[in-house]
Write a protein that binds this DNA or RNA. Structure first.
Lengths: 198, 198
DNA sequence: CGTTAATTTGGCCGCACGGCCAAGAAACTG
DNA sequence: CAGTTTCTTGGCCGTGCGGCCAAATTAACG
């Protein structure tokens, strides 16, 4: 893959992410992506097999590059904690710090995931796509239950609601740039900290 | 308005709600609505000025009829409680009972609200549309803070996350009919009950 | 410099959409 | 039953989409 090819593909993917985050799925057309990337429409077809590949590449790029950095940011913060309570708070606050920096990518993902379909009309990424993330959070909560720090609750249900609370911050931030996400993180951490305690 | 007109309009709106809930915004086309309603495409144009009016009427119908019944179900349950804690639990559980019965309408709303735009491309219903609902919940939480039952937290932030937890149940129920929403309601009520306590 | 390959453009194509209408069918009226 | 209004159909039209390609432009190379 030549430097030009790499640069063009990157440029197209960036334009697609921008548009998905700013104007949503429906208005993210090939023409709009080309306009935003300052290239002609046909050039996208030269570098990608079609719209499908562009959006698939957006997902893969975000998952493999952005989420990797998110993981690198969150893991040490969580691992540094000795208590399950501390881990939960570190998880919530570091995850929301990550959202604050990468809400564009998260918005783009949340536009693609429920909309991108294959030829037969089936969703390319179905609703179970986020299950591993929720399961990982639930495992952390269950650890706290085993140590006796957390009361007996349905860890999956609580992890699910926590995931929604975190994802919602990306939507909110996209719609209202003045949204104080650090304050929100602190409040959500307090809520779940006290709500999970034994 | 004749009986036939009333019946046709109702039939079209029902078909639109079904489609929005089942296949989403993008696949809810005039042709699909007509097919679902078992009428010709042109007949929709006879009874409605266009797609815009159909979707606007869907929103108005749901808000004025469905939410009215939801309110009638929730209010007595909440009013019957004497404590703020009891009110919060009654709010969460009765609201989720309502979601269990009317998730189709809630899914339809959550498809229309972020997608329906006017001629200039502006969202017909912007993100502040749900603000009154959140504000009402926040007011209930603040009442609990004044009585001393609840600790000192940002009532709006907590109400916002609670709203997301409740709305998410409609999405989840649409994607997975086996989802145990009564159990979820109980878990969320426990979580917020303990999380808000002084 | 000439030749070949890589890159880029602008425009055309087929398709599905929302909207519209001519015409007919059905219901109502006196 | 004739006349009138209401209701319904099927199809046509313009638009914007994603995809595609011939031609032009630029880069690479001996």
């Amino acid at each position: 893959m030549s430097l030009v090819q790499e640069a063009r593909r990157r440029r197209v993917l960036e334009a697609a992410i921008d548009l998905l985050a700013e104007v949503g799925w429906e208005r993210t057309t090939m023409a709009a992506i080309a306009r935003r990337a300052k290239i002609s429409k046909g050039l996208i077809s030269y570098h990608f097999s079609g719209k499908d590949e562009v959006l698939t590449q957006v997902v893969e790029t975000i998952v493999s590059e952005v989420f990797l950095r998110g993981s690198e940011r969150m893991q040490p913060r969580i691992a540094a904690e000795t208590t399950a309570r501390g881990m939960l708070r570190a998880y919530i606050e570091s995850n929301l710090e990550f959202v604050a920096e990468h809400w564009r990518e998260m918005r783009a993902l949340s536009e693609i995931l429920p909309n991108l379909r294959d030829e037969e009309g089936r969703l390319r990424y179905d609703v179970t796509a986020e299950e591993p993330i929720i399961a990982a959070t639930a495992a952390m909560l269950e650890h706290g239950q085993r140590t006796g720090e957390f009361r007996d609750f349905d860890a999956h249900a609580v992890a699910f609601s926590l995931r929604r609370a975190i994802d919602a911050a990306a939507h909110r931030l996209a719609a209202d740039p003045t949204f104080d996400i650090a304050h929100y993180a602190s409040e959500i951490a307090d809520l779940y900290d006290q709500g999970c305690r034994a």
